[in-house]
Design a binder for these strands. Structure first.
Lengths: 193, 193
DNA sequence: GTCGACCGTTGATTTTTGTCGACGGTTTTT
DNA sequence: AAAAACCGTCGACAAAAATCAACGGTCGAC
C-alpha cells in the first residue's frame, strides 16, 4: 500500500529511489485506517503526525469564538494532512483534522521524518518542490479571496478542483470558500451565463 | 552591506557560516539600488531575481481585467521579494513588484541560487525554515480572509505588522486586506471600543 | 420502521461593504 | 510658483452577502 507514496516521491523529486530507500520509507510511514468522523488531529493537541492520504478524504477546520466552524483545507488522495505549525513546533493546534470518509493514511512523526530526511535526498527534494507548489497555490487562493466575488471564487474552485465538489458536502465547500452555505446554494441555482 | 543577509542566514539556519561561505554569498548576491517607483518585476516579464531588502520598502500587485490594482504582498527590510512561481518556473509573471521608497536590495538569479545552495548547507536550511514560516503566515492570512470581517482583519494586521501601517499609503493597505479604501477610512474613523 | 441528525433550499430582512462623485490638503513635477 | 498627481475623507446610494426562520428530503441509528 506504500506504492502511491513512493511514486509520489519519485514524481516530485524527479529522481529514483533505491531498493534500500524504498524499504526505509515503507518502514517509517505506518499505515493507519480511519473511519468517517474520526480525528487525525483534535484542537488542543499537538499535530503529532503528518499523514499522506492513500484512499479517502479529510478536512481541516477550526471553531471560532462564536462556535462556528471554518474549513481551511480539504484533502483527498495524494494530499498531505497535518497542521504544519503544530507539527514543526510541537505546539498545541487550534485545528481539527477529521475523516470525511473512511480513509487510509500513511503517517509519520516529526522525529521520524527528520531522521528519514537525513538519509534520503529525494525526500528532501520532494518536500522542497511541494513547498514551492504549496506556496504558489496559497498565493492564488489569497489573490482570489482579496479580489474576487463569491461567485467567481466558486467558479474558480470548480475549475481548479473539479473532483472536490463530489466528495464534500456543499456547506463545507462554502465554508472553505469563505461564504455562507445559503449564498453558495443561490449561486449554484442561478443559471451561470 | 551584505551583513544583514549573512546575519539573517545564520539566524534562521541556526548555524554559522565559514569565511569562505560568507565570501561566496557576498559574491553571488549583487547590490542593487532602486528609486521609488522603479520596478523589480514588471507584468509579462520573468521574475529574474529574488531580492533581499536591505533598506526600503516594496509592494507586489497585479492589475485585474477591470484595470484595478490588487496588492498581494508588502515588503520591508529583511523580506524577500520575488514572484515565486515565475522565479522558479521561469515563466512570465502577472505581477508587478515596485519600490515604494528608495530601496537597496541584494539580488540573485535562480541559476546562481541553485549553484550556491549546492555549496552552502546553511542556505538550504534557511530557505526551508523560511518556507515553513511563510506557509504558516499564509495559512493565517487565509483563515482571516475566510472568517473575519474587514474591521477584524485590519485590527489583526495592525497587531501583527505594526510597522507596515507607517510605511505604506492607506489605500495600498486596504487593497492588501481586500477592502475598499473608503471602507478602511471609515473603520479607522470609528472609535474602536 | 421510526426518529432524529444532517443537508440543501428558499424567502424575507438586515448588515456589511463597494461604488460614485466630490472636496481639500499634500506632495511631486515641471 | 503653478500645475498636476496623489491621498484620505465624506455622503448618498447600490450591490453583495449574511442572517434568520422554515421546510422537505435523505440517511443512518436504534
Amino acid at each position: 500500500m506504500h506504492r502511491p507514496l513512493l511514486d509520489y516521491i519519485c514524481q516530485y523529486s524527479k529522481s529514483f529511489l533505491t531498493i534500500e530507500e524504498e524499504e526505509m520509507i515503507t518502514k517509517a510511514f505506518r499505515p493507519k485506517k480511519m473511519r468517517k468522523r474520526q480525528y487525525l488531529l483534535q484542537e488542543g493537541n499537538v499535530s503529532k503526525y503528518t499523514g499522506f492520504i492513500i484512499k479517502g478524504a479529510m478536512r481541516q477546520y477550526y471553531i471560532d469564538e462564536k462556535g462556528l466552524e471554518h474549513v481551511v483545507y480539504l484533502f483527498i488522495e495524494n494530499y498531505w494532512a497535518t497542521d504544519r505549525e503544530s507539527f514543526y513546533n510541537l505546539t498545541p493546534s487550534i485545528y481539527n483534522i477529521e475523516a470525511s470518509e473512511n480513509t487510509e493514511l500513511l503517517i509519520i512523526t516529526r522525529a521520524e521524518l527528520v531522521e528519514l530526511m537525513k538519509k534520503i535526498p529525494a525526500l528532501v527534494e520532494m518536500i522542497r518542490v511541494m513547498d514551492d507548489r504549496n506556496a504558489i497555490a496559497m498565493q492564488k487562493r489569497i489573490s482570489a479571496n482579496i479580489s474576487n466575488t463569491a461567485e467567481e471564487r466558486y467558479e474558480e474552485f470548480i475549475k481548479n478542483y473539479p473532483h472536490f465538489a463530489q466528495r464534500f458536502p456543499q456547506h463545507q465547500i462554502a465554508s472553505f470558500l469563505g461564504i455562507a452555505k445559503e449564498t453558495l446554494s443561490r449561486i449554484k441555482r442561478k443559471p451561470s451565463r
